[in-house]
């Protein structure tokens, strides 16, 4: 189990934290040491709001071992409001109800368990936006 890796990625997994270039303002997720646009090495952390639209998706029926208990599950590319595209599972929706362009919001969910006795890994997934409760 690669504990250091999951500790290292906690700001990305739980808070969707990328980088904002100090020179050109370009946003990146995942964080990069060198700006993809202007090649500057100066950047500050930037938290994404976690709202976006589904750009493309797949329902996976034959999965790598650790994801096997979850098939079929949906993985998509999501265009965040801030203009960055990220890869994540789409949850709380059946494969037949998923459509390109649907509005999604980030939630923290279990990603997988590392065997019977290992730790459970959490991180971002995206779900269709829940309607706000009105008083």
């Amino acid at each position: 189990m690669d504990i250091p890796r999951y500790w290292r990625l906690k700001d990305q997994r739980y808070r969707l934290q990328g980088r904002k270039c100090k020179d050109c303002g370009n946003l990146s997720f995942p964080p990069r040491l060198v700006c993809q646009k202007c090649k500057s090495r100066k950047s500050v952390p930037h938290e994404f709001k976690g709202l976006g639209k589904l750009y493309t998706y797949t329902a996976i029926y034959q999965a790598p071992d650790r994801f096997d208990p979850m098939v079929p599950y949906i993985v998509g590319l999501i265009d965040l409001e801030e203009g960055v595209r990220i890869t994540a599972q789409v949850t709380d929706v059946l494969p037949e109800d998923v459509v390109i362009g649907m509005d999604l919001e980030m939630v923290i969910r279990k990603i997988y368990a590392d065997g019977d006795k290992g730790p459970i890994l959490y991180g971002y997934k995206f779900r269709p936006i829940l309607k706000k409760m009105t008083a």
């Binding site: 890796r5 990625l9 990305q12 995942p30 493309t56 998706y57 797949t58 996976i60 034959q62 999965a63 790598p64 071992d65 650790r66 994801f67 096997d68 979850m70 599950y73 993985v75 998509g76 590319l77 990220i86 890869t87 994540a88 599972q89 990603i111 997988y112 890994l121 991180g123």
Partner: peptide, 29 residues
């Protein structure tokens, strides 16, 4: 299944594979 997981190492380990993507999945997107 083990070979499938190993082949997936061609993709981004931190941001694609841990999302449950297989190599077939990437091509499906």
């Amino acid at each position: 299944k083990f070979s499938t997981a190993s082949l997936a190492t061609a993709a981004d380990a931190d941001y694609e594979i841990t999302m449950g993507l297989s190599f077939v999945g990437i091509n499906a997107l």
